[in-house]
């Protein structure tokens, strides 16, 4: 059974905690990052997932290129289509990413802290002249950099395939948009990385931590969509059937669905990769004033559009990491 780790009660926290600690909390940080990254890159677990993501990239992009070859030259954003277009029977590449990235992230972090306890290396490592801060931050950064490395490699691969297959280079705007998409994807992974880390601090059993993190992921991927419409009906009921009421319900539902990192990620990627998108959800006539339907938004405007989603992804990553940090600081180190 999962044995939750003993956490000292806050009352037992001595006053001395408040006193200033001497020395940088980041002493030894890069030693931890280097070791953990080497572990990730050589682990079989990661290699399997890397192969998987590579295959989906090659498969989907190849399929898309078969379909769009005719429209090369007419479509100014043909490179972005490589990421977003679905060709039966394959889903779009971003569809694959939205569930492979959490999987990779969780697989790197679910045993980050409890693994050290179980191998009885925790007290040995913390007996070296480093703070706990450096250990946790190092583990997080190592996962984050690994994710960034893998995703950047995939991004280069897709762009390279595009150049070879379509026979033309990407425009500056396409490169800029797909780079923003890359950043959003990395932070989307960051959320699951930090979540896995929280679970690895809370549960001593890595299996429990992994299942816990995957359960949260499944919850947001599958159930949250159903729950939001139910909750929206409860919170903003439609009693008279007026347009206002309907609108409010839809807005409530949308707000609720944005609690899920999946929604944030999908909106952010679609918003940046599809310049034709001017708004999420329903468009009010006022928003369409002066706009030509179907005309692409300039890059800056698209970025404005997805700014809340992008910052939401980054903020969630930071918040979850902070939670893991606080929990870890309070943990007893007795191996």
């Amino acid at each position: 059974m999962a044995q939750a780790v003993k956490v000292q009660s806050p009352a037992a926290q001595p006053v001395s905690q408040a006193r200033k600690r001497k020395g940088s909390p980041w002493t030894g940080l890069w030693a931890v990052v280097a070791k953990e990254m080497a572990d990730h890159l050589s682990s079989v677990r990661m290699q399997i997932l890397e192969v998987l993501i590579l295959l989906t990239a090659v498969g989907t992009v190849y399929a898309v290129m078969q379909g769009v070859r005719q429209t090369v030259g007419q479509d100014p954003f043909i490179f972005l289509r490589l990421f977003t277009t679905a060709r039966e029977p394959l889903p779009a590449f971003i569809g694959f990413l939205s569930f492979l990235v959490p999987l990779i992230a969780i697989s790197m972090s679910f045993d980050a802290v409890n693994g050290e306890f179980n191998r009885r290396t925790m007290s040995r490592v913390l007996a070296q002249p480093i703070y706990r801060d450096a250990l946790l931050m190092g583990k997080f950064l190592a996962g984050f950099f690994t994710l960034a490395l893998v995703l950047t490699a995939i991004w280069l691969l897709v762009m390279g395939m595009g150049i070879l297959g379509l026979g033309l280079p990407p425009s500056g705007e396409e490169v800029a948009r797909s780079l923003i998409f890359l950043v959003a994807t990395i932070f989307y992974g960051g959320i699951w990385l930090a979540l896995g880390m929280v679970f690895s601090v809370v549960f001593r059993q890595p299996a429990t931590a992994a299942l816990g993190a995957l359960a949260v992921w499944l919850f947001f991927t599958i159930f949250w969509g159903m729950l939001t419409s139910l909750l929206a009906r409860l919170i903003s009921p439609v009693t008279y059937g007026t347009a206002q009421e309907l609108l409010r319900q839809i807005q409530t539902e949308q707000a609720l669905s944005r609690i899920s990192p999946n929604t944030l990620y999908v909106e952010a990627t679609l918003g940046i990769l599809n310049p034709a998108i001017r708004s999420f959800g329903i468009l009010l006539p006022t928003q369409l004033e002066g706009a030509i339907v179907g005309a692409p938004l300039p890059l800056a405007q698209s970025l404005m559009l997805i700014w809340p989603q992008l910052t939401g992804l980054i903020a969630a990553t930071i918040l979850l990491f902070a939670l893991a940090y606080v929990l870890f600081q309070r943990q007893e180190i007795r191996a």
């Binding site: 001595p14 001395s16 006193r19 200033k20 600690r21 001497k22 020395g23 002493t27 191998r119 009885r120 290396t121 007290s123 040995r124 007996a127 070296q128 002249p129 480093i130 703070y131 191996a335």
Partner: peptide, 23 residues
């Protein structure tokens, strides 16, 4: 040790009772 742990841990070696390595 609670305020200057780095100074202490740089000069003190510790062999825990349950010793583990990265296998």
């Amino acid at each position: 040790p609670s305020r200057e742990p780095l100074d202490v841990k740089a000069r003190v070696g510790y062999l825990p009772d349950a010793i583990g390595f990265y296998d």
